[in-house]
Simulated scan of single mutants.
Amino acid sequence: MTAAQADLQIDRPSVTDGAALWRIAKDSGTLDLNSSYSYLLWCRDFAGTSAVARGEDGRPVGFVTGYVRPERPRTLLVWQVAVDPAYRGRGLAASMLDGLTARIAAEHGVTSVETTITPGNTASERLFTSYAARHGASVSREVLFDAGLFPDGPHDPEVLYRIGPLTHPSH
């Protein structure tokens, strides 16, 4: 943890954090915004495989949502990562991702991470390729969902990043 993160706490989200996660996702400018209801459900049903960063006042300033894949129980799928604009540039996304995967590895034996990234999202590409490097893991990429699969208008393809096996423990 850097000095810039010393005033932040990373823990599991609770249902009362759902509205803040929705707002942070909305303000990100890059994430697909889901319904506020979905963030409430996520904070209830997937809190154990997600993380929230809290500022000094206890309010969420960033989050990572994820779940253990039922068909691949040693794989954590990271769904969304977002940081409030006022807290960007401090390495908070990387710290949340490292902390979450360390917890999930200890609790579930997870040895790999998957996420999807749209082409051109360089911030996410950097976050996950540097994560792989820190954890001594390889990265493979393939299109998971072609643009034509999305029913609600133009959408970039979603490229699946498979990161693993994780060989260096998270810090």
Rank of each mutant, 00 (worst) to 15 (best):
T115S: 13
R69N: 14
Y67V: 11
G164A: 13
T122Y: 07
T65W: 05
T115H: 05
A102T: 12
Y39W: 02
V83S: 01
G58Y: 04
L92P: 03
A132W: 02
R59I: 11
V78E: 07
A102N: 06
S36K: 03
F150V: 05
H168S: 07
R72P: 02
M96S: 08
H171A: 14
T30F: 11
D98K: 00
L31D: 08
V78K: 02
V143L: 09
R54H: 04
G66H: 05
V78I: 12
A86H: 07
V110A: 14
N121I: 14
R54C: 10
V143K: 09
D17V: 00
A93D: 08
D45Q: 08
T111R: 15
R134L: 10
Y87W: 15
T116M: 13
R162L: 11
P85D: 15
H135G: 04
R72W: 02
T16D: 15
Y67A: 12
G153Y: 00
R54F: 01
A105N: 12
A47M: 09
T129L: 06
K26Y: 13
V159H: 05
D146R: 11
F46G: 05
P60I: 09
A106E: 12
T129I: 13
S95R: 01
V159F: 03
H135L: 10
P73R: 14
F128E: 11
M96V: 09
P151G: 05
K26M: 10
T30K: 04
V61N: 09
A53G: 06
H171S: 07
T2E: 07
D7R: 06
C43R: 03
H168A: 11
A6Q: 06
Y37N: 00
E125D: 15
V139F: 04
V68H: 02
F128A: 12
D98Y: 00
Q5V: 03
A20Y: 08
D156A: 15
L166M: 14
A82G: 11
A102F: 07
G55H: 00
S50W: 02
R44S: 14
E56M: 11
E71V: 12
P73E: 15
S35C: 05
G62K: 05
F46A: 14
G136F: 03
N121K: 10
V81D: 06
D84V: 07
M1S: 12
D32S: 05
